[in-house]
């Protein structure tokens, strides 16, 4: 089976905007919504928003990723929320 970092951009793109569980080679697990997968390093960027807490971002380096499982599918609304967190010109996105 292909290693995570050898997979295709199509495969990486399929997990964007979905809630996933990422396992690394130390068997640590990370849950969150995928903002992107860097096509150079295969690193996964997860966003997690807990109630009454500030959103947190976790980057799991591609060389350490062993498995990515989709837990829940995202919607257009979750995609829009995530983009508003990251886009350089946030004010423009929030007012759009």
């Amino acid at each position: 089976m292909l290693q995570w970092r050898d997979r295709s951009p199509q495969h990486w793109h399929e997990v964007v905007n979905h809630e996933v569980c990422v396992t690394n080679r130390d068997q640590q697990r990370f849950e969150g919504r995928v903002f992107t997968v860097d096509p150079v390093s295969a690193s996964v960027v997860l966003v997690s928003v807990q109630e009454n807490e500030r959103p947190s971002v976790t980057v799991i380096l591609g060389h350490a990723v062993t498995d990515v499982q989709i837990l829940r599918r995202g919607t257009e609304e979750t995609e829009r929320q995530m983009k508003s967190v990251f886009l350089p010109d946030r004010a423009q996105i929030l007012s759009a």
Binding site: S8, Q10, W12, F35, V37, P39, V40, V85
Partner: peptide
């Protein structure tokens, strides 16, 4: 199409790095 997906994914990663700049980050 593959290249379009790569550039979209990469652009989002670069946004992530720019948001990360000057933040206190925990490294495992």
């Amino acid at each position: 199409e593959e290249q379009r997906l790569r550039s979209e994914l990469r652009q989002r990663f670069l946004w992530t790095l720019s948001v990360m700049r000057d933040k206190l980050v925990q490294f495992d």
